[in-house]
Design a protein around this nucleic acid. Structure first.
Length: 737
DNA sequence: CGCCGGGGGTTCGGA
DNA sequence: ACCCCCGGCG
C-alpha cells in the first residue's frame, strides 16, 4: 500500500472509506483522479471485489481511458476487467446483451444527434408542419429533456402540453419513438432510459446486475441528469457501496439536463452518506486559486468548501485590453511569444479559451501568421465529416438495414438514379404502414415506379444485402474495403481532383486504416464489422491522440477545457454580452452557471493567467461596443496586475478609463496591457547589418531577411538574448543605425 | 439532378 | 460574417 503515502489526509480518508455510500466533493486541481484510481486499486488489492464486480462511470471516453491506464499501473493488468467507461458505453454494452427483451436485436444502431434531427424533420414534413415556425432542434430538445426525466410520449401528451409547440412536440415524440423502434435504433437518451425500462420490466435482470456490481463509482456527478441518477441508484440498491465524485462549482452542463439536484438527492437517499472534501489545490499558484475563490464567492448556491493551496504565490493575473477583436488576437499572440521567451514555455504550455466557437478565427489567423503551431479542439471531428458519415452509413446498413437514417443518407449517394420524388414516396409509404424504409424498398416491385427507378432500387438492395453477407463472412477491414469499393464511394471521391476532394478520399483511407488496426488488434476477440460499429457511435473526437503530445498551442471553448490544465491560460473575450453571454442574463441560475464556467476557466491555469477583452467587436456582422465583463470586477483586485487597484469596487470604472487612448508615440504605455509599451519604427527599409533595438531583447544585429509582405521575417542576433527569428509585422524594432 | 443565390439564424455540446 | 437549407432554374 505504498501509494497511500502519496496522499494527504482528506484524500486518504476518501480512498480508504470504501464501504457504504460516499460522496467526494473535489475542488479544482485537488487530485480527484488520483483518489478515484487509488480507491479502485485499493478495493482490488484488498480483495474486497473482483475487478469484474467494479463499475466506474465517467463522462468522456478520454477520462475513462486515462483512469484505466492509471489503475493498470497500480493494480496491474487485472484492472482491465473493471466495468469502466462512459454511462453510454457501459449501458449500450448491457443493452446489446439484453436487446431481445426489449424487442430490439443486438445489432441495433445508435442514432447520433444528426440522425435524430433528420428523423424529426422527416416527421414534421409528414405532418405538414412548417419547420420554420417549429424548429426541429427545438422539438428535439423538448423530447430529449422529457426523456432525461423519464417522461414517455404518453405522459408528455397528458401532462406537459401547454401550447402549440408542446402539442406538436407530443405528436412528434410519439411518432419518433415508433420510428426509432422500427429502425432498430436507439438515440443517446435511449441508452440511458432503456436500461431503466429493462430493469423495471425484468426484475431478475436488475438483480443480476445489482449483485454483480459490488462497488460503484461515478465521476463528474454534478453533470449527471435524472436518468443517470436513477440508474445508479437502482444498481446500488443491494450493496449500497456507491461513491460519487464531483464539484458543484464546476457544474456547467445544466443546459443539457445535468442537475445539481442529484447531489442533494444523494444525501437524502443515503442519510448515512460519508462526505469527503478535497480542498487542497495542487495545480495552480496561490494567486490563481485565490482569484478563482473570489469569483465563485459571488454565487449564492454552492456547497460549503474552502479551496486552498500551499503553492507559491506566482504572478498576478494579466489583463489585455484592446480596441477590437483583431487587436485582441494580435496582442494575445504577442503575449504568448513573450511568455515563451521569459518563462521558457513551449507551445504546448498554452491554451486560449473562449466562450463561443466563432471567436477562434481571429486567433487562428494570428497564430498562423506568427508561425506558431496550434490545434483547435472540438471543431468538426473526424467522425462528423460528410464522407466519413457516408461510409459509416453504408457500414451501418450492412449491420442493420432497417437503419432509416443511414438509408436516407446514401440511397442516392453516389448518384444512382433514385430521385427525391421516389424517395419521398417511399418514406411516406413507410410512415403510413409503420414499417422501416428498408422494408418498403424490399417490396418496391408492387408499388409501380418507373422501371428505371425500379432497376436502380433493385441494384441498391442487392448491394446492401451483399455488404451484409460480407460483414458476416469477412473481418471488419475486408468488409469495409469491400463496401468502400462496391458502394461506388471510392470512385466518386477519387474523381474529384480538387484539394478538398483529395482530402475527402484520404479521410476514407484513414477510416479504413482505423479498421485495419481494429481488425489486427489481438485484444478484439471478434474482429468483425458489427463489433467495430457497436463502439464507433460512442466514440468521438479527442480520441485522435496523434497530435496529443505534439507541441501546439491549444484552442478550445471553456466548456471543452474542463479537466485539462496548462501552464499559461488565456481567457479571451471577457466582455458583457459575450461572457457572460447575452442569453444568460435573465435568471440567477443561468448567471451562476456562467460564473462557474469562468471559474472552470481560471482553474485550468497552473502558472500564468491572462484575461483579454475587446472594447468593440463585430458580432454577426454587426459592430458592437462592449463593457468589460462583470467577472473581471469580481476578481479581488489584489490578484490582478493593474495599477488601478485603489478603491474597492471601482475597478470596473477604472478599467473603462484605461480604455481611453492615453498613449503618446514614443512613450511607455500607461496601461498594464503589455507588449504595446515599445513603439517600433517603420521596418520597410530594414536591411541586413542594421543595428536594432527590441523592447524585450535589447540591442541586436540583423543577420538575415526572408519572406515577403506579412510573412517577412528577420533573424536577429541580440547582444544579450541570442539569435531570434522575428516576424517583422509584429516585431517592434527601433532601427539604430 | 445539381448548382446557385437568397434568407434566416446564430451559446455552450458528451455520447 | 458565415453556414445551412430550400427553391428555382438549366
Amino acid at each position: 500500500m505504498d501509494f497511500l503515502n502519496e496522499l494527504n489526509e482528506a484524500q486518504r480518508e476518501a480512498v480508504l472509506s470504501v464501504n457504504g455510500p460516499n460522496m467526494i466533493i473535489a475542488g479544482a486541481g485537488s487530485g480527484k483522479t488520483r483518489v478515484i484510481t487509488y480507491r479502485l486499486a485499493f478495493i482490488i488489492q484488498q480483495g474486497l471485489a473482483d475487478p469484474f464486480e467494479l463499475l466506474a462511470l465517467t463522462f468522456t471516453n478520454k477520462a475513462a481511458r486515462e483512469m484505466r491506464e492509471r489503475i493498470s499501473k497500480i493494480a496491474g493488468l487485472e484492472a482491465k476487467n473493471i466495468w469502466m467507461g462512459t454511462f453510454h458505453s457501459v449501458f449500450s454494452r448491457i443493452l446489446r446483451q439484453e436487446a431481445e427483451k426489449l424487442g430490439y436485436t443486438r445489432e441495433f444502431t445508435i442514432y447520433d444527434t444528426d440522425d435524430a434531427l433528420s428523423s424529426i424533420k422527416e416527421i414534421l414534413r409528414g405532418q405538414n408542419i412548417d419547420d420554420k415556425s417549429f424548429k426541429p432542434k427545438n422539438i428535439l430538445n423538448l423530447i430529449s429533456n422529457a426523456k432525461n426525466y423519464l417522461i414517455d410520449a404518453e405522459e408528455f401528451e397528458s401532462k406537459y402540453v401547454v401550447d402549440t409547440k408542446t402539442e406538436i412536440a407530443a405528436r412528434v415524440y410519439k411518432i419518433y419513438t415508433e420510428k426509432c423502434f422500427k429502425a432498430n435504433a436507439m438515440d443517446f437518451d435511449d441508452l440511458l432510459i432503456k436500461p431503466i425500462e429493462l430493469f423495471t420490466q425484468y426484475p431478475d435482470i436488475l438483480h443480476k446486475y445489482q449483485h454483480r456490481f459490488k462497488y460503484i463509482m461515478v465521476d463528474e456527478y454534478q453533470d449527471t441528469n435524472y436518468a443517470q441518477y436513477l440508474i445508479t441508484r437502482k444498481l446500488a440498491a443491494v450493496h449500497e457501496n456507491i461513491c460519487v465524485v464531483g464539484d458543484d462549482a464546476q457544474s456547467i452542463y445544466s443546459f443539457r439536463g445535468a442537475t445539481i439536484q442529484n447531489i442533494l438527492n444523494f444525501k437524502s437517499d443515503y442519510p448515512d452518506v460519508k462526505v469527503h472534501k478535497l480542498e487542497q489545490n495542487y495545480r495552480s499558484t496561490s494567486n490563481i486559486v485565490h482569484a478563482a475563490n473570489s469569483v465563485i464567492a459571488h454565487n449564492e448556491h454552492q456547497l460549503e468548501k474552502r479551496v486552498f493551496t500551499d503553492n507559491e504565490t506566482g504572478d498576478k493575473i494579466q489583463l489585455i485590453i484592446t480596441e477590437n477583436e483583431n487587436e485582441e488576437a494580435r496582442k494575445v499572440v504577442d503575449s504568448i511569444r513573450e511568455q515563451k521567451q521569459v518563462h521558457s514555455f513551449l507551445n504546448r504550455d498554452f491554451a486560449i479559451l473562449y466562450r463561443t466557437n466563432m471567436q477562434s478565427r481571429t486567433f487562428e489567423d494570428q497564430l498562423r501568421k506568427a508561425g506558431i503551431a496550434y490545434r483547435i479542439y472540438g471543431g468538426l471531428s473526424f467522425y462528423r465529416r460528410k464522407e466519413i458519415k457516408d461510409m459509416l452509413a453504408y457500414m451501418r446498413l450492412a449491420i442493420n438495414p432497417k437503419d432509416d437514417e443511414a438509408l436516407k443518407r446514401v440511397i442516392n449517394y453516389p448518384v444512382r438514379g433514385i430521385g427525391n420524388t421516389t424517395v419521398n414516396h417511399m418514406i411516406a409509404k413507410a410512415g403510413d404502414l409503420k414499417i422501416s424504409f428498408w422494408e418498403v424498398l424490399e417490396q418496391f416491385q408492387k408499388m409501380g415506379f418507373s422501371t428505371q427507378a425500379q432497376k436502380a432500387i433493385a441494384g441498391f438492395v442487392d448491394a446492401i444485402k451483399a455488404f451484409g453477407t460480407e460483414a458476416i463472412r469477412e473481418d471488419a477491414h475486408d468488409a469495409a474495403s469491400f463496401i468502400a469499393k462496391n458502394s461506388g464511394m471510392l470512385k466518386e471521391l477519387h474523381s474529384d481532383e480538387s484539394a478538398e476532394g483529395v482530402s475527402r478520399w484520404q479521410n476514407v483511407q484513414e477510416l479504413l486504416n482505423a479498421l485495419r488496426e481494429f481488425t489486427e488488434n489481438p485484444e478484439n476477440k471478434e474482429p468483425y464489422l458489427h463489433s467495430f460499429m457497436s463502439e464507433i457511435a460512442l466514440f468521438t473526437d479527442q480520441d485522435d491522440t496523434d497530435k496529443a503530445d505534439s507541441d501546439v498551442v491549444s484552442m478550445m471553448t471553456l466548456h471543452s477545457a474542463k479537466g485539462l490544465e496548462y501552464n499559461s491560460v488565456y481567457i479571451v473575450g471577457v466582455e458583457e454580452g459575450l461572457f457572460p453571454g447575452a442569453m444568460s442574463m435573465n435568471t440567477r441560475e443561468d448567471m451562476e452557471e456562467e460564473r462557474r464556467l469562468f471559474y472552470v476557466g481560471i482553474t485550468r491555469a497552473m502558472k500564468q493567467l491572462t484575461l483579454s477583452y475587446a472594447r468593440t467587436r463585430n458580432k454577426f456582422g454587426q459592430f458592437s461596443v462592449n463593457e468589460p465583463s462583470r467577472f473581471i470586477r469580481e476578481i479581488k483586485a489584489e490578484f490582478i496586475s493593474s495599477p488601478h487597484t485603489n478603491a474597492e469596487g471601482s475597478l470596473l470604472r477604472e478599467i473603462q478609463k484605461m480604455n481611453m487612448p492615453m498613449r503618446r508615440p514614443g512613450t511607455r504605455d500607461a496601461t498594464p496591457a503589455q507588449t504595446e509599451a515599445f513603439i517600433g519604427d517603420d521596418l520597410s527599409n530594414l536591411a541586413t547589418g542594421n543595428r536594432v533595438e527590441h523592447g524585450k531583447f535589447g540591442l541586436g544585429k540583423v543577420l538575415m531577411l526572408e519572406g515577403e509582405g506579412d510573412e517577412r521575417k528577420a533573424t536577429i542576433a541580440f547582444d544579450a538574448k541570442g539569435e531570434k527569428l522575428l516576424v517583422l509585422k509584429y516585431a517592434k524594432l527601433k532601427i539604430m543605425e
